[in-house]
Amino acid sequence: MNALIDTASWILLAGGALFSVIGGIGMLRMPDFYTRMHAASVTDTAGMILMLAGLMLQAGLTLVTAKLVFVMLFLLITSPTATHALARAALEDGIEPQVDHDKR
């Protein structure tokens, strides 16, 4: 049982590590600011959730897990808010997205 939990936690941590690096690569590869935000959100959601879930499995049913849940909730609420504020500020500053289809 213990080995099983350890393996699951290992897989989650490795998955989180993978997604977080992919997001980092996307930050460099994507062509303009708005598409980079999508890459950033890969790191912010998948990387963060998987990694914290892996840590939760390590901690078991303790207060540490409760704290991990709070960290996750805070990040899940604040990160889209910050991204939205950023996107809106950029658009109002006149940074036009390079788009293939504009259906505004």
């Binding site: 708005y34 935000m37 999508h38 959100s41 890969v42 959601t45 998948a46 899940l76 990160s79 889209p80 808010t81 991204t83 939205h84 996107a87 809106r88 658009l91």
Partner: peptide, 11 residues
């Protein structure tokens, strides 16, 4: 915004 691939730019 939370879903990767889509971002709300203005509301």
């Amino acid at each position: 915004t939370l879903t990767p691939g889509t971002v709300t730019v203005a509301l």
